[in-house]
């Protein structure tokens, strides 16, 4: 008869990932590289917003982008046209990136000499919120057609984000979307979130967002 024992653990299933993410952040701090984790549902305008962001910051910062998708490389090709260093990561069916996958992506991108690396996470409002990638800050895009009640339906995503960009403001007149109600719903989940309405297509609100990002990068790299 084998001698069995019970280990009382009481630790989160995400403990190992959180440990890896913390290590990655420390290494990025030493290298003076700022990693932004950008999340949204599919079709919220991540790639267009990213193109505007790069164009707004590329004179001041050296930028790299990791495009995470389940398959294809259309996003990485679009981004590389901006002149930013871009690589495509395939998650092999997984709906999110964890700290280990982010580390592998960074090794592929080679962030030495870059100031800002943006991770475009897989389009999804559930799983990416659960896995700390090792990013310095988390941002998400909510687009007007998705509805102002999304912060109530996906509370975790909104609670972990430092910035929420409300995109597609140009189509606001055509949707039953109450901007003030949406802001209120976001603040219920996260009173500290910075909320910036934008239209990536019409290039509106982008300056406020890039100013915030620029300042965050500067204070991290000091």
């Amino acid at each position: 008869m084998k001698d069995f024992k019970v280990l009382e653990i009481k630790t989160s299933v995400f403990a190992d990932n959180n440990l890896q993410a913390g290590k990655l952040r420390e290494e990025l701090k030493e290298k003076k590289v700022f990693l932004l984790n950008l999340m949204s549902s599919p079709g919220a305008g991540k790639t267009t917003t990213l193109v505007r962001t790069i164009n707004g910051l590329k004179d001041d910062l050296k930028i790299g982008v990791m495009e995470a998708d389940i398959d294809s490389d259309v996003d990485a090709r679009t981004i590389s046209q901006t002149g930013a260093k871009a690589i495509q990561l395939h998650t092999g069916g997984m709906c999110h990136l964890d700290a280990q996958m982010t580390r592998q992506g960074l090794e592929g991108l080679d962030p030495d000499g870059l100031d800002l690396v943006i991770l475009e996470n897989v389009g999804n409002l559930v799983c990416p919120a659960e896995f700390d990638t090792g990013a310095v800050k988390n941002a998400m895009i909510l687009s007007v057609p998705e509805g102002d009640d999304k912060p109530l339906k996906y509370p975790l995503m909104f609670s972990i984000c430092d910035v929420v960009l409300i995109n597609k403001m140009d189509v606001l007149p055509y949707f039953n979307f109450d901007l003030e109600k949406c802001k209120e719903n976001i603040r219920l989940r996260n009173p500290n979130a910075i909320i910036i309405p934008i239209s990536a297509l019409k290039k509106e609100g982008i300056k406020e967002w890039t100013d915030w990002l620029h300042n965050a990068v500067k204070s991290w790299c000091e």
Binding site: K5, K10, S12, V13, A15
Partner: peptide, 11 residues
């Protein structure tokens, strides 16, 4: 709001 490893039975 979490998922916790409570016990591990092992030898």
């Amino acid at each position: 709001d979490d998922m916790i490893i409570k016990e591990i039975l092992c030898c």
